[in-house]
Amino acid sequence: MNIVLTELQKETLEEVFNIGMGRAAAALSTLVNEEVKLSIPSVRLMRRKEAALVLGGTSRRVCSITQVLRGEFGADAILIFPEEKSLQLVRLMLGESVDLTFVSEIEREALTEVGNIILNACIGTITNLLEGEFSISLPVFKQGDCVEIMQGATDEQEQVVMLLHIDFSVEKYEISGHVAFVQDVRSYQGFVERIERFIQKAMRS
C-alpha cells in the first residue's frame, strides 16, 4: 500500500487539524478562562512505538483521554497532559484545597470531561470538514507513560500510523499538553479520498 501523502495533502491535513484545534483551544480557554496557545501542527508517518516516543516516551507520567473514531476511516484521538499538571488543572476547576498524591475518582472524571470537551471540539470540526460518517466512542481515561498509553488495545508496535500532533499550553498555569490523531493506515485509502475531496472543493478545479 502506498502510504505517501503529497505535499498538498499533508498541508491540507495540517490546516484541517489546525482549525479543529482552534475550536478545541477555544473550548479549553472558556473552561479555564485563560488564553490557550497552540503550536504549529505537524503530520508524520511513523511506527506506533516511535509515535509514543515523539509524544514523551517513558520519561514522565501522563494522563490521557482517548476517543476512538470508526467509520470511513479510523483514528484514535488522544489528549495528553503531564500527570502533575493535569491534577493542578482539574483541582483549579474543582476548587479543591487538599493535595492528594493520587488522582481521585472525582478528579479523574472531571479530567475525562475536560478531555471530552476538547476532543469533541477538535473531532467535530475535522469530521465536519472531511464530511465523514463516524461513530465516536466515549472518552477513556488512562494514566501511565506515553508508551503504555499508545499501546492501546493493540500490540502492533511496528504498525505504521499517521501522527497528527499539536502542542497547546496555558501559560498562567504552566499547563501544556498534546493532542494527537493516530490514524490507522489500514483505513488510509478512505482517509486520503476524504482529503482529496476537500482539496477539490477548496480549489474548485
Partner: peptide, 12 residues
Amino acid sequence: VTANIQDSMRRK
C-alpha cells in the same frame, strides 16, 4: 482569517 477564535485573541 483565523482558526484561533478565543476571546483572549480578540482582545489582543
